[in-house]
């Protein structure tokens, strides 16, 4: 199977131009982009992404402002590169699930990822997503039972997010048996790629991920690099990734 690798960037962070350019540059290597909408209480995120979220909020970033740049990115990258919005449940619920999905459709978003909606609460979101042609990403974790993995695999669209560790973003990736076993089960039942995320920071982490999963997601490392070292370093790192994973 072809690999399906993704990157995470915080929407409009560190500024709108840098965000758009990084997205376009990153998608020369990556197959999909997750775009974070800043939220005041990002409980699934570690310091780097939480701080990015806070900084964005302080600068007045709103979901609508991010959607406008997603629209722009959509016109700058080929259609087989996928765009996912990643945000907390309150954004979707508060705006109205219908209205939110419509905003996704009109800005060219392909899928949605909500880290504080577990599978048991997902139907109210996934049904509306599906009615609008938006993919709904489910999660598996080291804690998931076989039945839970099968259920998530059966309902996931876009891709299946397998969380490498018990924890939040920005930690150290885990490749323990409990997640690797679950990935094996998921790949048996899932019609979409099974992608490993949380803590994937180095070329080596990525290579390890690809031994068992269909792809990996890099977030914290890229958000940090873009913020503290700038677009040139980010761009060099993307080249490095391209060289290391070219088939």
């Amino acid at each position: 199977m072809k690999t399906y690798n993704g990157m995470y960037l915080m929407g409009n962070h560190p500024d709108e131009d840098t965000f758009v350019q990084a997205a376009v540059r990153g998608l020369e290597f990556f197959d999909f982009l997750e775009i974070g909408l800043p939220f005041s209480d990002p409980v699934a995120d570690g310091d780097v992404i939480s701080n990015a979220s806070n900084t964005a909020l302080e600068k007045g970033v709103t979901p609508d402002k991010v959607f406008r740049n997603i629209e722009k990115i959509r016109t700058l990258v080929p259609g087989h590169k996928h765009l996912y919005v990643m945000t907390y449940a309150n954004h979707v619920y508060f705006r109205g699930i219908d209205t939110f999905m419509e905003a996704c459709v009109s800005s060219g978003v392909n899928g949605i990822i909500i880290p504080d909606v577990p599978c048991r609460e997902s139907v109210r979101f996934s049904s509306v997503a599906s009615a609008n042609g938006i993919w709904y990403v489910q999660f598996i974790t080291p804690e998931s039972s076989r039945e839970q993995v099968i259920e998530a695999s059966a309902t996931a669209t876009g891709f299946l997010y397998s969380i490498s560790v018990r924890g939040i973003t920005g930690g150290k990736a885990g490749f323990s048996d409990d997640i690797l076993d679950n990935i094996r089960i998921a790949r048996e039942f899932s019609r979409v790629p099974v992608v490993l995320g949380f803590g994937i920071k180095t070329i080596d982490d990525g290579i390890k991920s690809l031994h068992s999963a269909d792809g990996f997601i890099m977030g914290t490392r890229l958000v940090d690099m873009l913020y503290s070292k700038g677009l040139d370093s980010f761009s060099m790192f993307i080249s490095e990734l391209s060289n290391n994973y070219s088939v």
Binding site: D116, E121, F139
Partner: peptide
């Protein structure tokens, strides 16, 4: 039985905590 008081309540936490 699924943790709701009418419209309110529920279990909106990362998947990792569901079994906990």
């Amino acid at each position: 039985e699924i943790g709701y008081f009418g419209e309110y309540g529920g279990v909106f936490i990362p998947e990792t905590l569901v079994n906990t």
